[in-house]
Design a protein around this nucleic acid. Sequence first.
DNA 1: CTGTTGAAATTTTTT
DNA 2: ATTTCAACAG
Length: 723
Amino acid sequence: MATKTEQRETDWKAQAPKGLGAVKDAILNPLNDQQRRAVQHGSGPLLVVAGAGTGKTATLVHRVAWLIAHGADPARILLLTFTRRAAREMLSRVDNILRHLERVAGAAAVGSAGEPLGARRVWGGTFHAVATRLLRRYGKAIGLKSDFSVHDRTDAEDLMGVLRSELGLARLDKRFPKKTTCMDIYSRCVNAQEKLDQTLLGHFPWCSEWADQLRKLFEAYVDRKAQTAVLDYDDLLLHWLALLQDQQVGPAVRGLFDWVLVDEYQDTNALQAEILYALSPEGKGLMVVGDDAQSIYSFRGATVRNIFDFPEHYAGTTVVALEQNYRSTCPILEATNQVIVQARKRYTKNLWSQRREGSRPELIRCQDENEQAELAVRRILEHREAGVDLRRQAVLFRASHHSIVLESELSRRGIPFHKYGGLKFVEAAHVKDLLAFLRLAENPRDVVAGMRVLPLLPGIGPGTARRLLERLDQSGGSFAAWHECKVPRPAARIWPELVELLMWLAAGKEKLPTQVERVRKFYAPLLEAAYDNAPARLRDLEQLAQIAARYPSRQRMLLELALDPPTSTQDLPGKPDLDDDYLVLSTIHSAKGLEWDAVYVIHASDGNLPSDMATGDEEQIEEERRLFYVALTRAKNYLYVLYPLRYYTTRPGVSDRYGFAQCTRFLPHSVLKYFDQRVGAAGVLDRRAATGEPDDEAEVDARRMALMNLRRNIRQRMKRYWD
DNA sequence: CTGTTGAAATTTTTT
DNA sequence: ATTTCAACAG
């Protein structure tokens, strides 16, 4: 493989000796020495330990450009990233460089002969997305149908829930773990390649007593997926590995790639490491980039061990450390360095910056959440006055609900914002409903989709739905069989219409947008009957029809929406306010790899960061520390850390609804020297006074009770609005 | 078998 | 505060 590349390189040198120098310069000029070492590296295993803000992405991008410019076939390069967006962005940057090179050296001089230069043919994406593509093409060899469907996390949980009640685990004397928890446990076992007992002991001790039942449940789960041609996220990885290890097709699949580059290696899990090993046992052409100090996905089975053990697994590994930080000012970098210095085990990196000037980070102690929101907003507006657009600023937090108070304050003031890491567009119940029609048509054995579609009809509940699905399965997945089925009276009138619709969809003769449109027409009256706020939901569905036009096929659309859901409606096309200036709100996890001029980390109090749920063992606390570090290192010029002394808690059994907090333990005295400390003025906002509620206590109470009851009823009626 | 109400148990982060 | 389940009324 490498010989082929060298061969081409030689030819090209002979052809255009002048071009070579120019191209080399053009690629290497913008880089520092360490980055150049990584970019120019040969085909031996390469580990790049890249500190926060050290140009990790630039290095990967230039490396890909370098390989292509030296004759590597783009179609034989595999770029594995953490999100699909990251892959897209990198590949378009590679394209830009290559275009630039063409201008510098002349088109003929670069790339393999006769082919237009471009990164478009590079295989890029997440492990899961690449696995899907490979399995669709080669899956047959390991007994997988090529039209398998992919379950996203909530679908997988739903299936777990179905089996949970089928096995009678729902009605026991003692309560069995929830479907979400079951899924978490299962997924952890698979991803960490860990025994169930061990997983339970280490991460779910309160579920240990259920080990036997869980084993049964998981067995049933695995069986059912196989029967119904369904893969969940974990299966995608498992099957990719199986494909590589297969005697027959393994070598062919392995031989597809000469170069494998992996981003965010610190957040890969044992299974992913094994896939890489199967791809390239000697590490030939393998390059991984990561920062052990930023490993924050252990809950998903990721292990820092991957990055620490890399040099041991691959003999002759070259390690390059990137230490020059281009992102942050010195005062910020000094502070963040202090935070990570306290970490237990790590590759020692000494990050330094040439950006001498800048203000020190601030630690702001607030009375309560309202004041925290108020002070954050005040700073944000000050910066905007000074010319820092809202979109160059971000508020970061540990858990999605930490931003609720801030969100309402922003809405009240009419400040536009965009929240990442919260609910996603495709997770809205009505969107899921509509997609379920398509999924059922695509794969009639997809029980989860069926259990979603059928109970939409009046009079049909889980019981009838299950019966109908069994019937469908017996008839080999032909919806025509449903014409003869008896359904409860309330559904009788609309039933033939549904059957016709599904038959029409299954035939798949019409264009995708037409299909979506027809499902929408059928579904709209049901939606109006079932959910409130119907107009807004209907508008979402119209958008869905628009999106459908972008996909080449129904299967592709379903796969991609499952693997790479748009983060919110803002990400969808045809949104006029996309150009508007908006503030970014994000969980720290979703902020990974991004940067902003001004960063506000809120709820930086012990109990929230580290989260109370993660204070079990030291390893978890270390991860929380890294999480905090990731948050701080997103800042380029301004950094604010805020925490409320008094915060609202939802914890039951606590008589007072308020808890008291201390500053996060990750900012001990020794680190605080690097921060300016501020105390917010007391009592900035009293919402009670502002909203003008009546004084009469009893009346207030009664009204509150009534309101709670009302909301509860609404919620139950549309209990599936958000999954 | 469906839909409603009451009561009991309960863990952040996401491909 | 939300999710799950049992009991009860159509």
